[in-house]
Design a protein around this nucleic acid. Structure first.
Lengths: 258, 258
DNA sequence: TATGTAGACAAGTATAAGACAAGTGCGAGC
DNA sequence: GCTCGCACTTGTCTTATACTTGTCTACATA
């Protein structure tokens, strides 16, 4: 089993961080010192440090050093409001930038919902006030999507465009490490957490007609559910918690980083 | 009947993978090493590896190596049901292991909701069929919590225990990298994504009486929302998307390296 | 034809060693 | 008070070697 040096060092530093060795506003040893201590080059040590930075465990300032951030990843919670209200209040324009528009063969998990036929796939980046806000992929059967142009999907929502009556939807909310391309589009480090929301919309005749995947950067986004009556169950009404079938021990992101 | 070499190798690798020989954020032996070990050419070994890649068991990156993917398939979509129903149906026992029970001064974000007075804090680990399932922290005002014993909270839920009438709740669903201690409890690597659900429950007289934080490993958990009518908005009914104040400066170039 | 072997090459990654620019902290000197 | 320079830091780049996967061709064998 091969080992990767910088991941080893990152793991060791992670342990030392968890042990509280560096807390208290103190700086870590300099890259040069760490390099000597671990017997690795500065490039390698740096990669390990970048790894921890991507996890929000460390920060650095040029000319100063590496340190444990004062508030490691909390915040961004607290003040709440609807997205529409926020956007309207601050007068920002919600731009939709189409990244990709075309008919493709769906991957397995999409085919399981919409069928294996050719599907219209639209990938776009939603911007709020110029800031990337969400990476969206919409899948739609060719039968319905063939009437749509690239300009259509940039102007209006699929709900308004599709010539079918929509009945209901099922939405799943999960989390995952950001893929490299999504991370770049959203302006976040690869591997940092993103909220993944997949919604299957069905028409009034019970057929799945739309599958949308929204990917939000976790540090800027969260969902809020208002529950008029608190149920006795752990999961609130309207929400169902599902567990995956596997107890697979999730490996460290050996390659998930890039 | 002639044996097909690359299928033999694939089968052997499958066993070794199932035995957990390679998990853990490390790399498999290189194709050259496997080639020597199995006495087969690199092309043959490669075909075996590709076989496992097709099954989602392995991934590779050019110049890096083969590794067990961070995301063990999606699935778990489709099969829906409440957590209670699922647990009951599969006959697993949902154990609650109390980690911590005591009165403490709340951190700022809790004090903002429940006040700055001393609070009962219960930290526990929820297990489903022996597997860690969620790390839960419950905060409760001393006035209400002083009547509860450690055994009480291990046996029943707070909803059943509190002598007040509960009116409603607000739940936020977000994602974050796992803290080191949570990661250890849940059996996942530190920094990997977790779903963070915080629910504030209010009594019938409008006072916040309970604050619960559930932390789920993202790769095993996702929320499902059933939406009878599809709204025209991007965010489904009952869900509001909120953006944080975003004062936090994320590392500008964290993982932006391609 | 299907399968396997052997080899070569391109492209990407890991690591080392070094150089330089730019930012920070601090003390000497004014 | 103030500026200046020095020491030290991170940020970024180059050069180089070794190793890895990705892809291809040529050939052997049943």
């Amino acid at each position: 089993m091969r080992a990767v040096r910088y991941l080893e060092i990152a793991g060791d530093l992670r342990q030392r961080l968890a042990a509280g060795e560096f807390v208290g506003g103190r700086l870590l040893p300099s890259e040069a010192e760490l390099s000597a201590a671990y017997g690795a080059s500065r490039v390698t040590v740096r990669k390990a440090l970048e790894e921890l930075r991507a996890d929000g465990l460390l920060e650095s300032r040029q000319g100063f050093g590496w340190f444990v951030p004062a508030d490691p990843l909390q915040q961004s919670l607290g003040r709440l409001g609807t997205i529409e209200a926020q956007l309207a209040a601050s007068g920002v324009d919600a731009e939709r930038r189409i990244l990709d528009f075309g008919f493709v063969k769906p991957p397995a998990w999409v085919a399981a919902v919409l069928g294996t036929g050719s599907l219209l796939r639209v990938r776009r980046l939603n911007l709020a006030d110029g800031q990337p806000f969400a990476r969206v992929t919409v899948w739609c059967p060719e039968r319905l999507g063939s009437a749509l142009s690239r300009d259509d999907v940039g102007r209006a929502s699929f709900y308004e465009l599709l010539p079918v009556e929509l009945a209901g939807a099922t939405q799943t909310i999960g989390a995952a490490p950001a893929a490299a391309d999504d991370a770049e589009l959203l302006g976040i480090p690869a591997g940092s957490p993103v909220l993944v929301c997949r919604r299957t919309t069905t028409s009034s005749d019970g057929e799945a007609v739309l599958l949308a995947e929204h990917i939000f950067p976790a540090h800027r986004t969260e969902f809020v559910v208002e529950l008029p009556h608190a149920g006795s169950s752990m999961a609130p009404e309207g929400l169902q918690l599902t567990t995956g079938p596997n107890g697979r021990s999730r490996p460290a992101n050996g390659g998930a980083r890039a």
